[in-house]
Design a protein around this nucleic acid. Structure first.
Length: 554
RNA sequence: GGGCCUGUGGCUUAGUCCGGAUAGAGCGCCGGGCUUCUAACCCGGAUGUCGGGGGUUCGAAUCCCUCCAGGCCCGCCA
């Protein structure tokens, strides 16, 4: 109801003022929505803003009253307040399964996230990518977009060649029960150490890269095998984080099927192309001074070349191409966009997020300096299990474990998604393991409380009304859920959903504290139960959009 | 050196794109609340030069300029 009412007010204001932008803002404590259009009209009409506001309020009252909206001028501000009809309709809407959905969209979306190099396990920096990307994908799906989520597998880069070299020369054995990606990391770290000690090894690594480029079958097999093993490890981690991919796209495929060569031939025709043994694009006209190198002087292609082919393929099959990339990829991202523009292709929309570092400095797979996501998950689950055991000792162990897994997932995902992507962060065990206010478990808890009430209530008659200020505040927040999802999708900012869900939980908890539901009687009891049901459904939908289990009991 | 991002109470952070009515939370601190629908909760209190300075505007955390501090990038790596 919020979106509809907002649009209604905008259009009547536009009609009444003749202004395109009618300066609608949130009303804060004063109103549900407000407009400061009187200020901008004051200049044009040479009249005091308060008088203009008063005149507009009087004129609009008759139109808005039948829709349950009251309008009032407070000084120069126009305040719109939504009445009983709005509250009732909002409660009713929030009861529907899938509440928050915005209807089918024709646009097909492909969203790439994570795409970490398969040379070691995913760490707490990588999963910021996964969680931002996955939450965005969920928001797109909720908004009605058909959305495919892809992982772009780097299976022929230098890092992989180094791992393959290590496999061939170091004889490092896999430890019993070790995750394959952790094993790969040990090989990678040791191989890098050897290279540092003996630079001659670099030539051997180069040799491997040339063989892959030439599609030498046994070398290709080695690369694929190493990458496949690492990916098996990634799939476990990504599964535990509930950040699934619909498709893993291997970059070497673009070389094998000839797409990359086709890109090269298109690029060669550009005036910005230079082939001086090394092939590169001059992107100065885009404000990029560095040469955008696509082929090395030894004839091997660079990652960027395969990436261009990949994006061309995505552009052919989807209407919107969205990439989630770390801030360290900003330059390469704009180079990619610029190159695609040069050949007349649609560049991807890129969502960048800033770095996650450790208190002792930035993470590095090569140096073996990182907190693996698997460690974070294991430790958070341990802590969650202890919590559950303290609170619900009567539950069977298996059930406590199941709850702990969901709580741990909630804590991790929420802790990461709540921060705006453009903020760099320092990983902190204390806040990651906090299950209280402004956490995922806190929101799950509000949902579980609502479920508990509904379970005990038995049959009741649906009554759509909100009387007290606590009830009304809760309904007003519930009503905004579809707008929150729409805004997150519009601005590609998933943390808006995190903020929304937390505020919803806050308002539900306050309502819960002050307004008895089961002990109320008659119409009041029915109305509160209906409201609890609406809140529960909205919390559930919001949690699921965040990729968090909406537990019925915890 | 150049480019991008960030700077909001002791700590973490929303709000900044799209300027408006006393800057909103959490942690921590102080004080309250469990024979009452799950206390992973709720209520109250203290804590703010919105990095500094200039400017635009009736009005600036928000826009412009400048300076300072931190992060990231500037590879024939990804």
């Amino acid at each position: 109801m919020y979106i509809e009412t907002h649009d209604l007010i905008r259009s009547v204001l536009q009609e009444a003022t003749g202004e395109e932008d009618v300066l609608i803002t949130g009303g804060g404590e004063h109103a549900d929505l407000a407009s400061t259009v009187a200020f901008s009209l004051a200049k044009k009409r040479r009249a005091p803003p308060a008088a203009i506001a008063q005149e507009l309020a009087t004129g609009l009252a008759a139109t808005l009253a039948p829709r349950g909206v009251t309008v009032e001028a407070t000084g120069p501000y126009l305040n719109f307040r939504f009445g009983r009809e709005y509250l009732a309709a909002s409660i009713r809407a929030a009861l529907a399964p899938g509440y928050g959905a915005l209807g089918r969209q024709a646009t097909r979306v492909v969203l790439e996230h994570t795409s970490a190099n398969p040379n070691g396990p995913l760490h707490v920096g990588h999963i910021r990518n996964s969680i931002i990307g996955d939450t965005l994908a969920r928001a797109f799906k909720k908004s009605g977009y058909s959305t495919e989520v892809q992982y772009y597998v780097n299976d022929m880069g230098r890092q992989i060649a180094i791992v393959v070299w290590g496999m061939d020369h170091l004889g490092i054995a896999e430890i019993e029960g070790e995750k394959p990606d952790a094993y790969i990391a040990r090989v990678y770290v040791e191989a890098n150490r050897r290279i540092e000690a003996d630079p001659a090894i670099t030539a051997e690594v180069d040799g491997l890269m040339q063989l892959v480029e030439k599609q030498d079958p046994s070398t290709v097999r080695k690369f694929r095998q190493v990458v496949g093993r690492c990916l098996d490890g990634f799939r476990v981690t990504l599964g535990e984080l509930a950040t699934p991919h619909d498709r893993f796209v291997w970059e070497s495929d673009f070389l094998r099927i000839g797409d990359m060569e086709r890109v090269f031939s298109r690029l060669h025709r550009l005036p910005q192309a230079h082939d001086e043994g090394v092939f590169f694009l001059d992107l100065n006209e885009f404000g990029i001074e560095n040469r955008y190198i696509l082929r090395r002087s030894d004839g091997t292609s660079v990652y960027a070349a395969r990436d261009l082919a990949y994006h061309l393929w995505k552009g052919r099959n989807f209407d919107r191409v969205i990439d989630v990339l770390g801030a360290d990829h900003k330059l390469i991202g704009s180079q990619l966009q610029a190159a695609l523009r040069l050949i007349g292709e649609r560049p991807p929309e890129i969502v960048h997020f800033e770095f996650v570092s450790l208190p002792e400095g930035s993470m590095s797979t090569r140096a073996g300096k990182f907190v693996p996501a698997d460690d974070l998950i294991a430790e958070t689950r341990r802590r969650a299990f202890d919590e559950v055991t303290i609170r619900r000792p009567e539950l069977p162990e298996e059930e406590r474990h199941a709850i702990a897994e969901s709580v741990a997932l909630a804590a991790i995902r929420y802790d990461i998604v709540r921060i705006s992507p453009e903020k760099s962060t320092v990983f902190d065990w204390t806040t990651a393991l906090d299950f209280e206010r402004q956490s995922g478990p806190y929101i799950q808890y509000a949902h579980a409380r609502a479920c508990s009430i509904l379970e005990k209530a038995g049959e009741y008659r649906e009554v759509f009304a909100a009387e007290s200020s606590y009830e009304q505040a809760l309904v007003r927040q519930i009503a905004k859920f579809p707008a929150a999802v729409a805004q997150a999708v519009e601005e590609l900012r998933p943390h808006l959903i995190a903020t929304y869900a937390r505020e919803l939980a806050d308002l539900f908890n306050t309502f819960y504290h002050f307004e008895p539901v089961l002990r109320a009687e008659g119409e009041t009891r029915d109305a509160r139960l209906t409201l609890v049901r609406a809140a529960q459904n909205t919390l559930k939908e919001a949690l699921e959009t965040l990729g968090i289990d909406a537990l019925r009991s915890m």
